[in-house]
Design a protein around this nucleic acid. Structure first.
Length: 585
RNA sequence: CGGGUAGUAGCGCAGGGGCUAGCGCACUUGGUUCGGGACCAAGGGGUCGGAGGUUCAAAUCCUCUCUGCCCGACCA
């Protein structure tokens, strides 16, 4: 490609709002342009990079026996009503009516679409297992898009769907994806970890997320440096200690102004771990047959030094959504914010008690009276509720497996694999006939990678003061040919020759000064830069500089194509040597 | 959805009741330069996010509204 004919151009200054390096350079180098909140165009450079990523994805999906197909973005709402997600997913899903006033949705994922296909196509156990995928546009009306391509509303996603006759088959396909995803990320040279995860709106039980660990990430990952335990904080466990002792009688004590655990512990001169913290949420429960919504007050208790993990709480009570309760909602159940506990609460509430509270004795809790707390409260004797792990794991807490201190890190979710089971096949009646002639729901898995987000993470990982420096495997072109001489004949013939040898060349044929060309080359960041200048041309040589290391050499023009091919091969080999082959434990 | 912040030329910004709305970069033309974001000269381009209002007069003040960005809620 000739730069004089290129659609995009570089920017000297970062557009305002580009607050991470990766995003700034993707904009400045002309890889992407923004059209609205969370809506981006991929310019030719960005498009080529994502095409490279998609090629890697296709190769790896093919490798595990997947077939590529293409499902529609627009779905009739009927299939989404069958699974209930038409109702349970709120504003995040795009909806509209067609000319005949039928409900339509913009598919934000394709479990419904693929299950609809499966129930027509899969008849016998003899046809299982099956695996299909597509790479396609998704619309998710995220409430808060941010950081360029990291969190957008319209994006391209690889999603694959597996079908098996039993869970054993699902395990195999799941394990195959677990491994294939590591191969995909490592072939893109993006470092990542897999963590146990919450399955959220997808349903199902077991899921893993692939995380690019970086400060710009919004998820918190809990990991154990000792034994390798990793999980999203949303579901991460930790070893907990209980304070068991003989139950003492409840006693009301005056605690003026002690509205927080800190103030309370200070005032009573006790350890916060001897208190029970009460957190109020309102859970909404949606009937997925008709979309009717019901709200209930949720009272969550954790030990005073811990925090409530909302995802765990949501999962425990199977709520659709959770929001903080307003004071009047708490008071309506005879509780007093700041001095609250389930003791004496009235009306229809859901009480969830973390095991740290349920298994400890004689804790301090609110008396539901302004200025008073109870001491020596005991779960079971003074109040009841659902006992579950709803406390948030955090750095320094003890590993649930080996007991060593845990670490916390920020991460960006770049992929997710789910064992769906029969969540969709049962709801949509996608069954197969087994050996005995019985109709059995197909056991499914679903698996996804955000392609644009992957590019955004790569841009974040690979940059320096000069601009981007994407790895050879995903770089939009392999070589940047910069000509500084007036006579274009030599540059033209080199461009020709390299292109004919199958090398992807971006040729800067513009009438610009050396400084401008070098700066743009650094910004766009192709792995190999070839410079044609009078200095070395006198000796029949051209200079070659590697973007990643800054290493410079010069080659005779006659050897150039071979040397460049060798360098490309070296860089690709270096990536291939580091392909991660990791099996699911 | 709550809090904050900002919409003036392609990008970055200044101007904050008064006279042809400005600067840097980018762009066009001519010339000089030519290995790390050149120089000189001459140009083109915006009606100030939108609507309404106040005023002799509005980019500037007021009201409403739309949009972007940041934080939070939320989410993959």
């Amino acid at each position: 490609m000739r730069m004089s004919r290129m659609f995009s151009k570089t920017l000297r200054e970062a557009p305002s709002g580009a607050d991470t390096k990766g995003y700034e350079y993707l904009l400045r180098a002309g890889y992407i342009r923004q059209m609205g909140a969370g809506i981006f165009s991929l310019l030719p450079l960005g498009f080529r990079a994502t095409q490279k990523i998609e090629t890697i994805i296709r190769e790896e999906m093919d490798r595990i026996g997947a077939e590529e197909l293409m499902m529609p973005v627009v779905n009739p709402a009927d299939i989404w009503k069958e699974t209930g997600r038409f109702y349970s997913i709120d504003k995040e899903m795009g909806r509209f009516k067609d000319r005949n006033n039928r409900d339509m949705v913009l598919a934000m994922t394709h479990e419904e679409a693929v299950t609809d296909l499966a129930r027509n196509l899969i008849d016998s156990y003899k046809r299982l297992p099956l695996l299909v995928y597509h790479i396609q546009t998704k619309w998710r009306d995220d409430p808060r898009p941010r950081a360029g391509l990291i969190r957008v509303r319209e994006f391209t996603m690889l999603d694959s769907y597996s079908f098996d006759k039993d869970y054993e088959g699902l395990q195999k396909q799941y394990a195959a994806h677990y491994k294939a995803y590591f191969r995909i990320y490592s072939r893109c040279a993006l470092p990542c970890v897999a963590v146990a995860a919450d399955s959220g709106m997808m349903g199902g039980k077991i899921s893993h997320e692939y995380m690019y660990l970086a400060p710009i990430g919004e998820d918190t990952i809990i990991l154990c440096p000792e034994c390798g335990y990793t999980a999203n904080r949303q579901i991460a466990k930790m070893r907990k200690e209980y304070f068991k002792e003989e139950m003492k009688p409840v006693e009301k004590v005056s605690t003026p102004e002690a509205k927080t655990i800190e103030a309370l512990a200070e005032y009573l001169k006790i350890d916060p771990r001897k208190t029970a913290k009460c957190v109020f949420m309102v859970g909404s429960f949606i009937n997925d047959k008709n979309g009717e919504e019901e709200d209930k007050l949720v009272v969550a208790l954790v030990r005073g030094d811990l925090e409530v993990e909302e995802s765990k709480l949501t999962n425990t009570i199977k709520a659709n959504a959770l929001r903080p309760a307003r004071p009047e909602e708490i008071e309506a159940h005879s509780m007093v914010p700041g001095f609250a506990s389930p003791i004496g609460a009235t009306g229809d509430i859901i009480t969830v008690v973390d095991d740290t509270v349920a298994e400890s004795n004689n804790l301090v809790a609110g008396a539901n009276e302004e200025g008073y707390h109870f001491i020596n409260t005991n779960f079971g004797r003074d109040y009841t509720g659902i006992v579950a792990d709803i406390a948030s794991a955090r750095e320094g807490a003890l590993c649930p497996h080996c007991g060593k201190p845990l670490k916390a890190s920020k991460g960006v979710e770049i992929g997710n694999i789910f064992q769906l089971g029969t969540r969709y096949s049962a709801a949509m009646n996608a069954t197969y006939q087994d050996e005995g002639g019985k109709q059995i729901p197909v056991v499914m898995g679903s698996y996804g990678i955000g392609v644009g987000r992957l590019l955004a993470c790569l841009a974040e990982e690979y940059n320096d003061e000069g601009g981007l420096k994407l790895p050879m495997s995903v770089s939009p072109y392999q070589v940047h040919l910069v000509s500084l001489v007036k006579d274009t004949a030599i540059a033209e013939s080199i461009y020709d020759e390299l292109t004919k040898s199958g090398i992807e060349v971006l040729y800067d044929d513009r009438k610009e000064t050396a400084g401008v060309k070098f700066a743009d080359a650094d910004l766009i960041g192709l792995p190999i830069r070839i410079t044609l200048g009078n200095r070395s041309l006198k000796e029949g040589k051209v200079e070659v500089k590697l973007r990643s290391t800054g290493e410079e050499t010069s080659y005779l023009i006659s050897d150039l194509a071979e040397e460049i091919k060798a360098e490309i091969a070296r860089e690709m080999a270096a990536i291939d040597e580091n392909i991660v082959e990791k099996d699911l434990d």
